[in-house]
């Protein structure tokens, strides 16, 4: 890495669990990684859906967690749009439109970001509230961290986004 890009980084808090907001995050993440910047994504609350593995409708320890996870079922291939979801028709049409323009799908973006060295951090507190475990998430997520660790990464980044 050369002098120009040294010590520069991007940290994104992905709080939202919608496809459009997740793709926007990954466009920024992959572009920044291509510029040689260190990119970190902290997945919290609804954003955890983006990195959930497929399958497993009922997760959690008590009935409230189980109900929440059932109603909030989702993964990279199954996320709603934040506008014009139209009971799932919106995301289906958006996927077709994006394929026509050769925009990668969210799963492709995740793989590409990982290959470019983007680091994925699931939020420990959201996971414990929702009753989720590290094995519920895709293998690209290495480390589960808390708010203090997130902040220590964020303070060393010069671009911080909350999406």
């Amino acid at each position: 890495m050369n002098e120009l890009v040294k010590n520069k980084g991007v940290t994104i808090v992905l709080f939202s669990g919608e496809m459009d907001k997740a793709i926007a995050s990954f466009v920024i993440a992959t572009a920044a990684a291509s510029m040689g910047m260190q990119v970190n994504i902290f997945f919290t609350f609804w954003g955890l859906n983006v990195i959930k593995k497929e399958g497993g409708l009922i997760k959690g320890q008590n009935w409230m967690q189980k109900m929440l996870n059932m109603m909030n079922y989702g993964h990279a291939k199954k996320l709603a749009l934040s506008k014009m979801n139209m009971a799932g028709m919106g995301p289906a049409m958006m996927k077709i439109m994006m394929t026509q323009k050769k925009v990668p799908s969210l799963q492709e973006f995740i793989k590409m970001a990982h290959a470019l060295g983007v680091k994925f951090y699931p939020c420990e507190m959201s996971m414990s509230v929702m009753g989720l475990k590290q094995e519920d998430f895709i293998d690209e997520c290495k480390e589960v961290i808390g708010a203090v660790s997130y902040l220590s990464i964020a303070k060393d980044s010069n671009i911080n986004l909350f999406i």
């Binding site: 992959t30 990684a33 291509s34 510029m35 040689g36 050769k102 990668p104 470019l116």
Partner: peptide, 14 residues
């Protein structure tokens, strides 16, 4: 050709 933002930059970096 045919790729949209940010793919040309990503492919260039790779």
């Amino acid at each position: 050709r045919g790729l949209s933002c940010p793919m040309p930059s990503v492919k260039t970096a790779l």
